[in-house]
Nucleic acid binder design. Structure first.
Lengths: 224, 224
DNA sequence: CGGGAATTTACAACTCTTTCACAACTCGGA
DNA sequence: TCCGAGTTGTGAAAGAGTTGTAAATTCCCG
């Protein structure tokens, strides 16, 4: 599982990126400023850092430098505002691996991330699972006891969301926002229906769920 | 005997490089602009391409992209003028193998050429396939059960893109960007239409595709 | 035991894909 | 330069597959 650290003082953007990346199967950790970002980068050992150029305390440049000082730190992608006069060469020289100019499309950011990760090293097999169930995020394939199990997009998205958030109580609203997105507003019963489908396909005994557990009046919880 | 294609609008430089390379025992072909360069690269199958960044029609970047489309294509060394603000990362990302800043010495250029050729190594067996279908990238010929099957350029590009990316979910957008390129904007239905054509030509049963599989709401997947 | 909450099922609406025909376009040759 | 064959992108209609929801039922907790 690959972890990405996002350092940006704009909470909105931070969350947007987080959701985007999580949906792609990355673990995401967030920091609102340079100092905490540096700390996290050194303690959490992320596979990649996305860092805004303009931060309240340390500048993005400063962050890059410090991270590179540490030797073989994680690769860094710098975000810069459209107006900024960015010295690309300088950025790359001090250790940034790539930069993206705001505003950027999600596709662009993802492409750059993958390019950097690919360049840095062979991508770890991105496989999650529990019991005899395996989910290959790269291939978008789910197997159970070696047999492929088919999933519709909504089911698959819900499944990976659970897998990325094990052991946590997840409210229906949170699930809706994370999996369906802010633009669509299905009612919360919808989540139930899809959980049922997951259970039927993946629970050893769908009548007595052990992995996709109901939290009465709260929501659901996924237990590996 | 190895052939090198030189794309540069400066006739003087072109000739200088040609003489230099021929003295070293390479076959050299020349092109004064991006378009004819691309044509030559595709028809003459050089072992290596040297391409100026600044060209009258297509930029060197554009040339790189096109050449790398299907993931095969010859290695590329980019020439950039001293003043150019070169985005090294971008260059390497889109498929250039190395770059040399003008003015350069003949020794340097030769060293880089040899390095790239060495890295690329003995030409890989460039035949891909599945079932009784064989695709010879060298000759640009597709056979099925020994019989040649004709492919139009768009079909062929799509086919090789699939072949180079087996087993992965490929969104329509990704396919469009990779096969058609960032500058052309056909709508995503176009991909469907071409997939249909591939299936009709290559699937044992076009009504029940086993190799070019639809991922509903996601895109397509190629399974060898 | 009562009432709200969760599950289950079935289904209709909907979205996405396939198919097909066609017009625009490209390119080579006369 | 013009023409014709071949190629390619697109729209429209039909066909598949997906998904949100309602309604009936069961479950859970107080």
């Amino acid at each position: 599982m690959q972890t990405i650290l996002v350092i940006d003082d704009d909470e909105n953007l931070r969350e947007t990126i987080a959701i985007l990346l999580e949906r792609e199967g990355f673990d995401v950790i967030l920091a609102p400023n340079g100092r905490s970002g540096l700390d996290l980068a050194l303690t959490a050992k992320p596979s990649l850092v996305i860092c805004d150029l303009r931060l309240p305390d340390l500048s993005g440049i400063e962050v890059c430098k410090r991270l590179c000082l540490a030797g073989s730190g994680p690769p860094i992608i710098v975000l810069s505002a459209a107006g900024d006069e960015v010295d690309k060469v300088l950025l790359l020289e001090i250790g940034a691996d790539d930069y993206v100019v705001k505003p950027f499309g999600s596709r662009e950011l993802l492409a750059r991330i993958r390019a950097v990760l690919r360049r840095v090293g062979p991508e770890a097999e991105r496989v999650l699972g529990f019991d005899d169930v395996q989910v290959n995020l790269e291939r978008r394939v789910v197997t159970r006891g070696g047999q492929e199990v088919k999933f519709t997009p909504a089911e698959y998205n819900l499944l990976t969301f659970f897998l990325h958030n094990p052991d946590r109580p997840l409210s229906r609203d949170l699930i809706l926002n994370s999996v369906w997105g802010y633009e669509s507003f299905p009612n919360t019963r919808t989540v139930d229906a899809h959980v049922v489908r997951l259970r039927q396909k993946l629970e050893p005994d769908p009548n007595c769920p052990r992995h996709f557990v109901t939290l009465h009046k709260v929501g659901y919880r996924f237990l590996p």
